[in-house]
Computed example of a mutant assay.
Amino acid sequence: MTTRRGFLAGLLASGIASNATWADVGSPRFLTAARVGEQYRLYGLTAQGAEVFSLNMPGRGHAAAAHPEKAEVVAFARRPGRFAQVIDCSNGAVKAELHSPEARHFYGHGVFSSDGRYMLTPENDYENGRGLIGVWDRAQGYKRVGEFASGGVGPHDMLRLPGTDKFVVANGGIDTHPESGRTALNLPTMRANLALVGLDGTLHEITELDAKLRLNSIRHMALRPDGLVGFAMQWQGNPTDHPPLVGLYRPGSGIPPILGQAPEDLHHRMKGYAGSIAFSGDGTQIAISSPRGGMIQVFDAETGEFAWHIEEPDVCGLNVANNGFLATAGTGRIVRFSSPEAHLLRQDKAAWDNHLVTI
Rank of each mutant, 00 (worst) to 15 (best):
G10Y: 00
E123P: 06
R29S: 13
Q285Y: 03
A222H: 02
I258H: 04
A34P: 00
G49A: 10
K271L: 14
H267P: 09
I133D: 05
P28F: 11
Y43C: 13
T2G: 02
I133E: 03
E179I: 04
G230H: 08
I255Y: 01
A75I: 03
G44Q: 11
I133Y: 06
V320Q: 14
L8C: 12
F231R: 07
V169N: 13
L11W: 00
D115Q: 13
P162D: 09
V169P: 12
V36C: 03
T303D: 00
G317T: 01
G181K: 02
L8M: 13
A103H: 15
R82T: 15
Y126Q: 07
S338T: 09
V135R: 15
G324H: 07
H105S: 02
G181R: 02
L11H: 00
G49K: 10
S289Y: 10
L326W: 10
L196E: 05
D241P: 08
A287E: 12
G317Y: 00
M158N: 04
G15F: 05
N354F: 10
V298G: 08
G108E: 07
F30R: 09
A274Q: 01
A149C: 02
W136S: 08
D200V: 04
D300Y: 14
L228N: 05
G317Q: 01
T46E: 02
A96N: 14
N186M: 06
A33G: 15
G152F: 12
G227A: 06
G37L: 05
N19R: 15
R35G: 06
I218Y: 02
N322A: 14
L318K: 05
H220N: 13
N124A: 14
N354A: 07
R346V: 05
G304T: 12
F299M: 12
R104F: 15
K70C: 04
Q297V: 05
E69N: 01
E312F: 13
A66N: 11
P244C: 05
K271S: 10
G10N: 12
V145E: 11
N186C: 03
F167Q: 03
F231N: 06
L344Q: 12
G6S: 14
W352N: 00
L203V: 03
V169Q: 13
A64K: 01
V73Y: 09
A63F: 00
N19H: 13
G44T: 03
T183I: 12
A195W: 08
L161M: 07
I288P: 10
V169K: 13
P251W: 07
M233S: 08
H109P: 03
E102G: 01
L185Q: 14
G247E: 04
T303A: 09
V298I: 12
H62P: 01
A170W: 01
R117E: 12
E69I: 04
V153K: 12
F167H: 02
L245W: 07
C316H: 09
Q48T: 14
P263K: 09
P188M: 07
P340H: 07
H204I: 01
E72C: 14
G146M: 08
S18K: 11
G172A: 11
K212R: 11
M1V: 11
